[in-house]
């Protein structure tokens, strides 16, 4: 997995609340058996018309935001299904961090498995960053995972919380399965005990 450390990038404002996984990647694109190549279909129904032409008003189609690496979003981003195609599509487009007041549980966890950082901040701070993002390509935000800070283009610094284990894995690009495999003895022991205690399982 790619490591995440520091990021300086353009942030796209998406103030809509409850942006769900069907909006992020509509189900017609879930038929793939690969993880890659979903970026062109990110936000497909908001981004293109039925003929496949770009809708100029959509934020990621605007010249200022085509290279965005950060999204600042309304509450409850990523709600809906468990599809990891949502973070895959975001990552494939080039998004490395999403900032919101809240995320849906499964989406939040899926981000970390794909080298992407979801950042939770209080409402007032997300509003400030939303305004900052609206300034366009000249307003670059800095994200420092080690220091757990987001710095707006005018230098204002916001501190965010992140689970220590998840932070460690993201910074080191660690693969969860590899880590768990190191605990295989614990799993063996548990399985043996459980087979005694609950043999019907």
């Amino acid at each position: 997995m790619e490591k995440f450390d520091k990021l300086t990038g353009i942030a796209a404002p998406m103030p809509l609340v409850n942006i769900d996984t069907d909006m992020i990647i509509p189900k017609v694109f879930l038929k793939t058996i690969k993880r890659t190549g979903l970026g062109v279909n990110l936000f497909d129904e908001m981004r293109y018309d039925r003929q496949g032409n770009e809708i100029p008003d959509f934020v990621l189609n605007k010249p200022a935001y085509r290279e965005a690496q950060i999204i600042v979003a309304g509450d409850n981003f990523g709600c809906g299904s468990s599809r990891e195609h949502a973070p895959w599509a975001l990552a494939d487009f080039g998004i490395k961090a999403v900032i919101s007041t809240s995320f849906a549980d499964i989406f939040y966890s899926n981000c970390f498995k794909n080298g992407m950082l979801p950042i939770i901040l209080p409402k007032e701070q997300v509003e400030i960053l939303m305004k900052d993002a609206e300034k366009g390509a000249n307003a670059r935000m800095d994200i420092d995972l080690e220091a757990q800070t987001v710095t707006a283009s005018d230098g204002e610094v916001f501190h965010f919380e992140v689970d220590a284990f998840r932070k460690h894995c993201l910074m080191e690009g660690l693969d969860d399965i590899g880590l768990t495999m190191e605990r295989v003895a614990n799993i063996d022991t548990f399985e043996a005990q459980a087979a005694q205690a609950r043999p019907w399982v």
Partner: peptide, 21 residues
């Protein structure tokens, strides 16, 4: 009972466990 992403599906297939808080 809860939903998981595909990386976690792979994790459960390989280890029969899930990393959870």
């Amino acid at each position: 009972a809860h939903g998981i992403g595909t990386s976690e599906v792979e994790h459960v297939l390989a280890t029969q466990t899930l990393i959870q808080k």
